[in-house]
Write a protein that binds this DNA or RNA. Sequence first.
DNA 1: ATAGGCACCTGGTGGC
DNA 2: TGCCACCAGGTGCCTA
Length: 283
Amino acid sequence: MPELPEVETVRRGLAPAMEGTVIAQARVNRPDLRWPFPDRMAERLTGARVLQLRRRSKYILADLDRGETLLIHLGMSGRMLVSGDPLGQFVHDHPAPEKHDHVVFDMANGARITFNDPRRFGAMDLLETSTAEAHPLLAQIGPEPLGNGFTESHLVDALKTRNTPIKSALLDQKTVAGLGNIYVCEALFRAGIHPVRRARNISAKRIATLVPIIRTVLEDAIDAGGSSLKDFRQADGELGYFQHSFDVYGREGEPCRTPDCTATVQRVVQSGRSSFYCPSCQR
DNA sequence: ATAGGCACCTGGTGGC
DNA sequence: TGCCACCAGGTGCCTA
């Protein structure tokens, strides 16, 4: 479930097993995910110490002590399983290898990180740390929604000329980083904005309301994900997989959750993807 | 420059 | 049980 909150949850789950620790051995079980891995990736990772795990949009960035940064994207189906952690914080024993385990890091502290991705829309690359932000995959991305750069004036300016549905404009990572199909639907519901409306036709005042709403939607989801980390030991160890209660996403035909609203959640397909909304609350 | 559609890939679900 | 159509949390690339 990798939108920003899930990626942040994964980052937080990986941090205690990886930060400050040497990658004793990195192994790759195939030559590529969405793209070929960089040259000699396993060799370049093996023996490197992870200084810090960062997140930019839906990317995880692992800064290494060799001046390189490992970039990780989970795509649609990517998972990071932590096992064998000596602190007993995660799945204790290494589970049997599974289909689609593409990359494995054995850490010097005994932890094992397994990257599993059935659809292989995920990616890994190695960047020079000092110029990481200039990487083509990162350079065009808009402000972090939980950072200082995501302001009402930014969003108003970014959307006032966009002749595309507000749903599409918010999915565009140049507008704001990290939103995906679920949280755009949820944010538009909370803002009372119909997903099909053209962005430039929505008043600046209404667009401005989206800023705190987007922040809150994402923070709520991160809080929910973070709490699920506590369940790791007895759970099956699936990092980044947690329950979340949605107002509209995936609820086609079910009643709107707004008090006194009698409408049912509708689904409309926009550029090939489902949008869920309440036709009464969202205009 | 911007907008829309396609492609990449596997697995789960529901209908016949 | 088998087969098939359809759906899924992302995003780069190609075309108008």
